[in-house]
């Protein structure tokens, strides 16, 4: 076995600008898609429990389609598929300071739509976990639907939503690698480009693995702090340990409950 240690350390500790750009793009893709996915998920969850006409059925169809097809297929379908069928082409958008390339837009759209389906189920389960007595009390005080959701239900549902949301973002950081197939120069594609120039696959993939491991670990710490804050008022409740969050048993439980 040959492992070029100096090469490994160099790329790990003194990454090139190209590499850092890739890292940046991974972070932007993940954060933006998670935020958009959570917003989509919130409205989908509210739509699903609304009982208004066909809305719950449409939402269920969306969730079914998104969760039942591979994310990789969705990414290619949205970017390449729609363009090939002359339905939609993603053009670069000039935002003044930065230009957002078409494939980045398509990548964010695919990741967000996919994430929205999972978040919809998580948020729905979270809302369902709040004691119905809270709704009744809020109604009896004359609160309308908006106030009731915003001030009473969602803040309490957040305690149930945050642990699986943390796991979702952990997955998002890793799933964002899939948009490399439509040529988005995020961390993985940058690594791939480097390997084709240097042929140091083992070393470079060790480096990229460590980068993702660092991102997910840092996120785990952030997540722990956010959850501790939301658990403030529930003095009797035990804050789940780092291991529980990291390995995602709570996600499994939440999905089962959904």
């Amino acid at each position: 076995m040959h492992f070029d240690w100096p090469f490994f350390w160099h790329y790990l500790l003194a990454p090139s600008t190209t590499y850092l750009n890739g890292l940046m793009l991974t972070l932007v893709l993940s954060v933006v898609s998670q935020i958009l996915g959570t917003i989509i998920g919130l409205f989908a969850a509210l739509g699903r429990i609304s009982g208004i006409g066909p809305i719950p059925y449409l939402v269920r169809f969306y969730i079914w389609a998104m969760r039942g097809t591979p994310l990789l297929v969705q990414i290619v379908f949205i970017y390449t598929g729609l363009a090939a069928a002359n339905i939609l082409r993603f053009h670069d958008i000039d935002l003044g300071l930065v230009v957002v390339p078409g494939n980045v837009q398509a990548g964010i759209l695919a990741l967000s739509l996919n994430e929205g389906a999972y978040m919809a189920e998580i948020i729905r389960a979270g809302i369902a976990s709040v004691d119905p007595g809270q709704t009744e009390a809020a109604k009896s005080l004359g609160m309308g639907y908006g106030l009731l959701m915003r001030r009473i239900i969602l803040p309490q549902a957040a305690r149930f939503i945050l642990p699986p949301l943390g796991n979702e973002f952990n997955a998002m950081l890793k799933n964002s690698t899939l948009v490399s197939v439509i040529g988005v120069q995020e961390l993985l594609l940058t690594t791939e480009t480097l390997t084709s120039a240097t042929f140091r696959v083992f070393e470079l993939y060790s480096v990229v693995a460590l980068y993702y491991l660092t991102l997910t670990t840092l996120w785990g710490l952030v997540q722990g702090r956010i959850e501790a804050r939301f658990n403030r008022s529930e003095t009797r409740e035990v804050v789940p340990g780092f291991g529980t969050r990291f390995f995602g048993t709570r996600l499994v439980r939440a999905l089962r409950r959904g």
Binding site: Q134, S140, G142, M143
Partner: peptide, 25 residues
Amino acid sequence: RGRNIARQRREIGMVFQRFNLFHHM
């Protein structure tokens, strides 16, 4: 309409068996 019902409920106080205080406040 929901809005009218909410308006009427302002004038009616209700106390529940299980208190139903908002736990996060």
